[in-house]
Each structure stands twice: as structure tokens, then as C-alpha cells.
Design a protein around this nucleic acid. Structure first.
Lengths: 197, 197
DNA sequence: AAGATGAGTGAGTAATACTTACTCATCTTA
DNA sequence: TAAGATGAGTAAGTATTACTCACTCATCTT
């Protein structure tokens, strides 16, 4: 019988934990279901009681990790009312979070986007909600005159997210140290004040 | 016997063409080697004479496509000497090229980065050379006073590339129409003049 | 006591990336 | 011109791996 999702038995939790651990040093494709099961201390069959596929497991891992990320960011912007200050906090928080949680960053930026089923997953719904929230901040900023009115809010949101991602990408891929403060400062300057002298 | 790479027989070319065709509607993982062989009109065995693995085939497809992209961009910046104008052309060319060649965009942005061996491939070497060239332009721009001197050239390069990528990502993933001119204009404004009012 | 529900098992199977031993044709060179 | 090397292409494998299915065992419900 298939699992319905309204409980969280140890086998499910251990499986999620196992994949997360294995992906600290390996990419998703190279990790086998047999390894996941062994590391989790369960049988392969059980994995498929809780997850529809190996990919579905990955998406649920991301869902967990993104939920925590989202919470962290929301807490940090709660105090401020200025749109630009809020965006600044989002940039800083994202980079710090990527630097501290490499598995999260790799899954989100490198491992899921190649497959269409990701975009039908709950994890992606969460990401979309997060992105919408950023756009709301931009809308507010334009409305109250903080941000130029001729800028398209959706494109600006994508530029912010893309800038953050790509600025960390090399460090994430090659497991290099990432100086969050320097990168944050530089991105903020470019995006808000422009690079032109 | 293994192929050495100094010839380009029909079987090799047809294989590359077949994967390119198949990826117009499908993601890499869902395309099987059997399908590639069938579409190319060769046997599976032959594929492994010319390519070390299915992934290696993908990287060589990307190498071909990126070579053409690179040429297009270089031709278009050849006439101008201003750094900012050159960067502007790079932004516009990239977006136009992604819009017109979706398979190229999907491979480069979504399909290769999840695997470490990509970063040892010739395709990645090409991408690196291209990225270095962009950084050279930024260096020049800082040297002649066009670009703010307190901006880190490498981070600025990543911000430009990330902004371009993410601004097109939704359209690439969901095969939506992409208005290159509007997106280009908006990105340029943000990156060079800043979003702050 | 009977039955339902849900966690967990373990032995499968089908698919698929990759291998290997081979043929056939063309070119080289002694 | 015979001998041999080289390279394109084949066909029938194999090993791996994601996924399935029929089952047990324990706990809860009525």
C-alpha cells in the first residue's frame, strides 16, 4: 500500500537524512538507491513506500531544506520596512545560507532544474511562493519611490536571484570558501547604484 | 579500438545531431542511448567508439553549440571599443541566442552543471575562456574609468552572467516566448545605472 | 475476536548504460 | 601484389540500478 503523507515514520526520516548525508560529497545521479537504503538502515522497498521515485525523494529533501531557508529569511526581514533594505537582507541571507549549507545550494541550483517533474513538485511551489514574495517587495519599493519606476519588477527579481546564484556558483561547485560579506556588498552596490562610474 | 578524435566520420556527426534533435522536446536523462542510436541510424556500440559515455556525448554537443555562440558574440563586439558598449552587446547577444536556440540554453544552464566531469570537459574549457574574456573587458572598463573602480571584476562578471541566465530561465524551462529586447534593456539599466530611484 | 491499518521486508524484474569480440572495406608499404 | 595495419560499423552480450510486488508483523479499532 502507498503512503498517504499524513504521518512521518522513522523510515521516511532516516531516508531523507541518508540522501542528505550522501550528497555532501556526491552528486545526486551517482548516489544509488541501494546506497541510500544501506545508509538509512532500511530496505530499498521501503523507500518506495514513502517516495514515488528517487527524484521525488530529492524534491522532498529540498522541500525540507527550503522551508528552513525561507523561515530564516522571513525572520530577518521582519523588522525593516524599507524595500531596498529588505532586498539587501535577502541578498545577504541567501549568500550566507548557501555558504553554510552546501547541499541545499547544490540541490536548488544544480540538481533539480533539469527535470520537468520538479516543476510539478511541492518543493517548487514553495520556491515560487518565495519568489512571489520578493516581487511584492519590489512592487512596494516602486510604489513608494525607492526603486525606479521604469524597471520591470519580475525581471528585476530574476536579476537579483540570478546575481546571487551565479556569484556563489563557482564556490558551490568547487567547494571553495565563500566570503559572504564581500560578495553581498559588491552585488548590492551593482544592483542598487549601478556599475557605471 | 577507441577513436582518437582526429577524424569526423558520419556516425559521429549523426549521433550528435540525433541527441540535439531529441533534446528539442526532452531532457537529457529521459533520452536513452537506444533512442539516440535509432534516431542516428547507428548501433549503440558505435556511439561508444566516439564518446566515452552518454554524458561525454552531451558535453561534445555543447562544445559544438558553444563554439558557434562564442563566434557570434565575438563578431558583434569586434567593432566597438567602449567596455560598457561591449558588455551591452554581450547581454543582448546572449539573450537573443538563448531565445533562438533553446537546446543550447537548456544544456548550458540546466543539464551539465550537476556533474563534476563536466568541469573536466573541453566544453567547460571553452566556457571558461569565454568568461575570462568578459572579465578582461571589465578590467579594461575599470582601467579607463568607465566602470566604478571599487567593483570586483570577477563578481561583476558573475552578476552579469547570472542576471542574463536567470532572466531567461523561466522562458527556457517552460518554452515560453522571450522578448529579448525588453529583457536586455531592463538588465542593462539595472546593472549599469542601478535600480535605486 | 475480527478486522483494518500501516511499517517494514526481500526477492524479484525491466530497463538501460556500457563492453567486447567480431566483420568489412580501404589504405599503406615492402 | 600480397601482408598488414587502420578505422567504420555491427550484434550480442553483461552489470547495474531504479522500481515492483506479494508478503509478514505489530498495533489499533470496534
Amino acid at each position: 500500500m502507498k503512503h498517504k503523507g499524513h504521518t512521518n515514520p522513522p523510515g521516511r526520516q532516516k531516508t531523507i537524512e541518508a540522501l542528505t548525508q550522501l550528497m555532501r560529497t556526491r552528486d545526486f545521479h551517482s548516489v544509488t538507491t541501494a546506497e541510500i537504503a544501506q545508509r538509512a538502515g532500511v530496505t530499498e522497498g521501503l523507500i518506495y513506500k514513502y517516495f514515488n521515485s528517487k527524484k521525488d525523494l530529492l524534491y522532498q529533501v529540498l522541500d525540507d531544506l527550503f522551508a528552513r531557508f525561507n523561515e530564516t529569511v522571513l525572520e530577518r526581514i521582519a523588522g525593516t520596512s524599507s524595500a531596498i533594505q529588505q532586498l539587501d537582507i535577502i541578498i545577504a541571507s541567501s549568500i550566507e545560507y548557501y555558504a553554510a549549507n552546501r547541499v541545499f545550494a547544490r540541490i536548488l541550483l544544480l540538481e533539480v532544474r533539469n527535470s520537468q517533474d520538479y516543476f510539478a513538485s511541492e518543493a517548487y511551489e514553495r520556491v515560487k511562493t518565495y519568489a512571489r514574495r520578493i516581487q511584492d517587495i519590489i512592487d512596494t519599493g516602486i510604489a513608494n519611490g525607492e526603486i525606479k519606476s521604469d524597471i520591470d519588477p519580475q525581471i528585476f527579481r530574476n536579476v537579483i536571484l540570478g546575481a546571487i546564484e551565479h556569484a556563489c556558483l563557482g564556490e558551490i561547485i568547487f567547494s571553495r570558501k565563500l566570503d559572504a560579506q564581500v560578495v553581498t556588498q559588491c552585488i548590492s552596490t551593482i544592483l542598487f547604484n549601478g556599475a557605471k562610474a
